[in-house]
Structure formats: structure tokens, C-alpha cells
């Protein structure tokens, strides 16, 4: 298969990818250019941020967030990153993830904030999952949101950019649709404006599939963690992603249509019934809908009380 862009210029070069949803075959160079042009256009068209703004990229060590960090830096945006060390010991998952983020930061000369959950809470995600009674993904989301927002506010960043891709967004929308969770559907958008105490959140990779992000990493030799999060095994999002890949195979462009037609045709019609008012947590000052401590501080209290009980038992 030949690169269509090169063919248009009268050059013959071998394609490395065929994108059925764009009816486009691209060689290594043209794919890199296409990806960066599309990323810049997405940021501009959806008014995510301007080149002068200070951006904080949340990096996990996975392919999507590292591709985003690398591409934004290459395109000349003012970008730093934050990595949350989740304290997952199984298969050295957190250790390797952190190393991948640190290595890319050094390579592209971009500042990386590191937050260790274990240093702040005394426990990693697997233990917090048992202590809180929340699912691992729920407790992970809670602590990540808390620390990322904290770093964004302290560092005066205009917004937080995450590596959510088209497959992630389609799987989430489908999941919300299955339960007709209108409140969650309203909150699903490429740009979530700044709210009292919450930094603006943007998803610049929302037009790219996981495969496109992986390819961008491979052609730029971005080393990412290939291991799946050991706590995410069997999540329903994996099933929905497989399902939508089947749909996409027979009907190319379905994922883009499903997500973006929702954004233009349905989301504006949904009633924003959320009456929850944001208040400041009396302990940490971060925004919360609760009248008392925020969910993060409640988790912190729970850890403290369990540790106190353990010590008391040892003394007894």
C-alpha cells in the first residue's frame, strides 16, 4: 500500500497505516505531520487553549498521555506535566510507569511534577481500595483528580490536559448511555470549563484512536508502559472498546460519528439538572459538593482511623 499524500505530490512511499475512517493511507513522515496538524486543529477549533497559556498534562506513563505531552511540546505549547505515583506494586506497575514519565520529561526537557500517593496517604491504590470500599478505578480517579487539580492551582496552570482518546470517550459514552445517566452524559465533553476551584479540563486527543496514539509513540520512539494496569483487568470499558472496534470494522467512522454527533446533536438538548453547589472543603480548601469534608479528606480520615486502630491492637 502506498502513501496517498506522497502520491498526490508525485512521490512513491510505503504506507505504514491505513485509516479506513478517513480513507487515507500514510507513510511514517506523513502520519506524524497529519497527527500534529489534526491535534493543533482540534485544540484551536474547540478553543481548548492558546499557544501562550501554561498547560499541565496529566501523564500516567501510558502511550496516550506521553504522546500528548511529546506532541504539545513539539508544537511549541507551554507545557509541563504531572505524574501521580499510585503505589501499585504488582508487576512493578507504578515504578515502571513513573520511570517512563521521568525519562520522557528528561528527553524533551519539560518539567514533571511527581506526587506519590503513598507519601501523602501512607498507602497505595490497592490498600486504599480495601480501606475505602470503593472500586480500584473509583478510588484512583478520586485521588488523581484531587492531586492534579491541586498542582494545577498551585502552579497557576490555565488548564489540565489529559490523554483521553476517541476509544476511551466512546466507551464511556456508551456506558453512560446503557444506564441513561444524563448527569454523566452532560459532563462528557472535550472541554470542561473552569469552575470555582476546579481548573479547566481538556482532552486534545479526543479525535485520535488508541491505535493512532500508539503509532505516534512508535514512530517517535516514545517509551511507554505496555503493561495493562493490574487493577483494571476485566473492566467493562475493555468490552465496549472491543465491541466498537467490531462496529468500526464494518462501518468505518462510526466511533467519530457516535461521539461527535452526540456533542453537536444531543448534548446541547440535555437538561443541566445539576443543582449541586460547590463549596470549599473545611480541611483542605478544595472544591466539594459536600457540606462537610470533601471525598478525598474523608478517605484520608478513614486511613488515619484504621491505622490508629492497628496501633492500638498492637499495644493491646
Amino acid at each position: 500500500m502506498k502513501c496517498r499524500r506522497c502520491k498526490d505530490k508525485g512521490i512513491s512511499s510505503k504506507a505504514i497505516i491505513f485509516l479506513p475512517h478517513h480513507n487515507l493511507s500514510l507513510c511514517k513522515n506523513c502520519f506524524g505531520e497529519w497527527y500534529e496538524y489534526r491535534l493543533r486543529q482540534t485544540i484551536k477549533k474547540t478553543r481548548m487553549f492558546t499557544p501562550g497559556e501554561k498547560i499541565l498534562v496529566a501523564v500516567s506513563g501510558g502511550k496516550d498521555s506521553l504522546a500528548l505531552w511529546y506532541a504539545l511540546k513539539k508544537l511549541g505549547y507551554k507545557v509541563d506535566a504531572v505524574h501521580i505515583d499510585l503505589g501499585i506494586k504488582e508487576k512493578d506497575y507504578s515504578l515502571i510507569s513513573r520511570e517512563k514519565a521521568e525519562n520522557l520529561g528528561k528527553r524533551i526537557k519539560s518539567h514533571l511534577h511527581i506526587v506519590s500517593i503513598k507519601e501523602h496517604l501512607g498507602e497505595g491504590i490497592p490498600e486504599l481500595h480495601w480501606l475505602s470500599g470503593r472500586s480500584p478505578c473509583s478510588v484512583c480517579g478520586l485521588v488523581k483528580r484531587y492531586f492534579i487539580n491541586l498542582i494545577a492551582k498551585k502552579g497557576s496552570y490555565s488548564c489540565v490536559a489529559t490523554g483521553h482518546n476517541l476509544d476511551d470517550e466512546v466507551a464511556t459514552l456508551f456506558s453512560n448511555l446503557l444506564s441513561w445517566d444524563v448527569d454523566l452524559m452532560i459532563r462528557q465533553a472535550p472541554v470542561l470549563p473552569e469552575k470555582k476551584g476546579f481548573a479547566r479540563r481538556v482532552k486534545p486527543l479526543v479525535r485520535f484512536t488508541e491505535k493512532e496514539n500508539l503509532l505516534y509513540c512508535l514512530i517517535h520512539e516514545i517509551d511507554y508502559i505496555r503493561e495493562e494496569c493490574p487493577l483494571a483487568r476485566g473492566t467493562s470499558s475493555l468490552l465496549y472498546k472491543r465491541l466498537f472496534n467490531e462496529v468500526e470494522q464494518t462501518s468505518p467512522g462510526s466511533k467519530l460519528r457516535f461521539y461527535f454527533n452526540f456533542q453537536t446533536n444531543l448534548r446541547p438538548l440535555l437538561p443541566n439538572k445539576s443543582t449541586a453547589r460547590l463549596k470549599s472543603c473545611p480541611s483542605c480548601g478544595q472544591p466539594t459538593t459536600s457540606d462537610n469534608l470533601c471525598a478525598f479528606c474523608r478517605l484520608k480520615e478513614r486511613v488515619r482511623s484504621v491505622e490508629a486502630q492497628k496501633k492500638q491492637k498492637q499495644l493491646d
Binding site: K211, N213, T235
Partner: peptide
């Protein structure tokens, strides 16, 4: 060592690596 599209042929002496793109969570 070279990325190939689905229409390419693989020969018996080739070494092939397949990288999975989907991640969960």
C-alpha cells in the same frame, strides 16, 4: 523492525511483533 499495513505479506523467515493498542481503566 518495520511497521506494516494489513495488505502486506509475511514470509516464513520473518520475525513479527504485534503490539496491542487497547488499554482499560
Amino acid at each position: 523492525g518495520e511497521i506494516v499495513t494489513e495488505d502486506e505479506y509475511l514470509e516464513p523467515e520473518d520475525e513479527v511483533e504485534i503490539i496491542h493498542a487497547i488499554s482499560g481503566g
